[in-house]
Design a protein around this nucleic acid. Structure first.
Lengths: 350, 350
DNA sequence: CACCGACGAGAGAGCGCTCTCTCCGGCTCG
DNA sequence: CGAGCCGGAGAGAGCGCTCTCTCGTCGGTG
């Protein structure tokens, strides 16, 4: 304890630890990095010196030489929100889905000693800023969440050779591993449920058809219905918002008042769909069955509670983190993408 | 372009830039850091060399010498979630409120060139991990969001002398600047609204009374009612969840069936309160007026839409970021805390 | 014409760490 | 008994950057 705080106000360095322990800097470093070739007695002395000086390694110095940073970037890429009066960065942050992804990521990254840097790219300038930052080598890898199918970021990232994992398949094909749920299989679950309940006049409120995931849910649903002998699928497009879902349902109902089943491509939209049905005098599920997608918080909050296709979001996020760590640890080996199987969660609405 | 990529696969260094530009490393550094004492011609040559080599400064090296990192930590501190079967890190992430805070923070931090590192402290071990990380000097400052009034983290942080800003007043008094909304003033707005509508049998669904904010909303509401001549406030405690709000409302209604007004200490709880009232045969707002708190997404989603006390969350988060930046730029000068005025947003429920 | 101040640019010393290389001493084995 | 080997520890060279110090040059002044 004697030689602590040699320099006023500055945290202890490895040099300090070594001096206090009476060993060389190299040995102190060995102890800290868990090298096995250190005598037990010396190891103890160094460990004591570490607590005595309350030493914490300087990550900048370490990363300067190791070229690792033990941190990854979580990049949220979204369409520019020019039209908004108040600048609102990171619309996606208020989406509980995003929170579940973060939670899953941290579940894996935290035990691995990896820190997470949060970044948003929502226009040309910020994209460049993000890319520059990433290229500075301040992170070992990138998790990219992109809601925009025309997002140039995946391609740009694939050119940096930085380990990267995408949430969802990239719109334009960038050769990057991604993690996704099997959209078609999910749509099939929904179709089977509705048909099994004897419903035959089935429609769907689809998501934006420029998004691959939304396309596949629609296509998958149509295909599954056809396989079950139900053809001619009326549908309307929503924008994955509650209000958009409500509007789409109104259109659908106006054209097809006889509907007895609806597959809604997201729970959030379903939250808009159900009240429209109720107000139109339909009982749910008695008159019209509703099946959502996601199994988000909204599904349980809905009245009646939503029967929905569950995406194992947290598990998927964990898998993303694992794929990323693997890339970081074994450079060059781009791991395969992983597609998760959805499940059907039966509640009240169908 | 001739001398680019001297070392295979490695990004260009300042040395490379200097060589290409035909100047010393010092001069190249001056250009990059915007020093005014550089000849215009040389400056141009250096800038050309930078683009030619596609140079990006190594932040680790820079921060090693400057002792700045140009990044801050966003620490989310929450009560341990032992009881959960699935480990769920960062329950708070799924709260849209959190997203709004992040959005506000980034609005200020991003233009300031500050990166944001996301961290969660939810038990003793993770708290230590976070604290160690912060002490390693890997961030210049900390934004702490804590939902637990007994959280030891604020005190621990105030001992590190690291610039810090809290979201909300710390439970135990830690001498750290915070940003908050004036809870009492908000409760007063709610009281005035309900009373102005001629309601006299007013109750409240309060938040957990071990949380200062929840206490103040209750106290402030009681005080404001008294000032308006309404005494004897029936109340029940909820846990700031929808289900908790519903349960509290049921208790309240059982004991006081004649209620004609309810102040609910959060919009999320109000989302549980309203259906309870409706199912008990009360019309909202005709029979019972409901005023929420937060002006969250939930308020607009509610049916009927909630009249609520608005917290300017994004503005508050911006202010937090500003306070933090000020502390970072002027070390030693702990800025004062800032208390925001809430406003009343009138919708349908009251 | 000699001197001085100002200004622009370079040299070089670190920042704190890791990691290779070297060295030393004790052991085994021919 | 000497050569070789190996485990364990130290010396020291950087990693890429900033920043102080120094130096050279030029214009102005007595």
């Amino acid at each position: 304890m004697a030689t602590e705080a040699r320099r006023p106000g500055r945290p202890a360095t490895l040099e300090d630890v070594a001096r206090v322990a009476g060993v060389s800097r190299a040995t102190a470093s060995r102890v800290i990095n868990g090298s096995p070739t250190v005598d037990a007695a010396l190891r103890r002395k160094v460990e004591e010196a570490i607590t005595a000086t309350s030493y914490a390694p300087n990550r900048a110095a370490r990363s300067l030489v190791t070229r690792r940073t033990d941190s990854v970037a979580l990049v949220v890429s979204e369409r520019e929100q020019r039209q908004l009066a108040t600048p609102f960065i990171g619309r996606m942050f208020t989406d509980p889905h995003f929170g579940r992804v973060v939670s899953g990521l941290l579940q894996v990254l935290r035990p691995a000693g990896m820190q997470t840097v949060l970044m948003v790219a929502d226009d040309e300038a910020s994209r460049r800023q993000v890319l520059t930052y990433l290229r500075q080598g301040h992170v070992d890898g990138v998790v990219l969440i992109s809601s925009d199918p025309n997002d140039p970021l995946p391609r740009m990232l694939s050119e940096t050779a930085l380990p990267t994992v995408l949430a969802g398949r990239p719109g334009r094909s960038a050769a990057l591993p991604y993690v996704e749920v099997d959209q078609r299989a999910g749509a099939q679950l929904a179709a089977e449920r509705l048909v099994a309940q004897g419903r035959r006049l089935i429609g769907t409120v689809a998501g934006p058809q420029d998004m691959p995931a939304a396309q596949e849910r629609l296509e998958g649903f149509r295909g599954a219905l056809a396989a079950l002998g139900v053809t001619g699928l009326p549908w309307a497009e929503g924008d994955f918002t509650r209000a958009g879902g409500a509007a789409a349902m109104r259109r659908l109902l106006a054209d097809h008042p006889g509907l007895d089943g609806v597959f809604v491509a997201s729970d959030l939209m379903a939250l808009g769909v159900v009240p429209v049905l109720l107000r139109a005098g339909r009982r749910v599920p008695e008159d019209v069955g509703v099946v959502g997608f996601d199994d988000s918080e909204a599904a349980e909050a809905s009245e009646p509670a939503l029967t929905t296709v569950r995406q194992p979001v947290e598990d998927m996020a964990c898998e993303m983190a694992r794929l990323l760590l693997r890339q970081i640890r074994e450079p060059g080996a781009a791991p395969p993408s992983v597609v998760f199987r959805p499940t059907l969660v039966v509640r009240e609405s169908s």
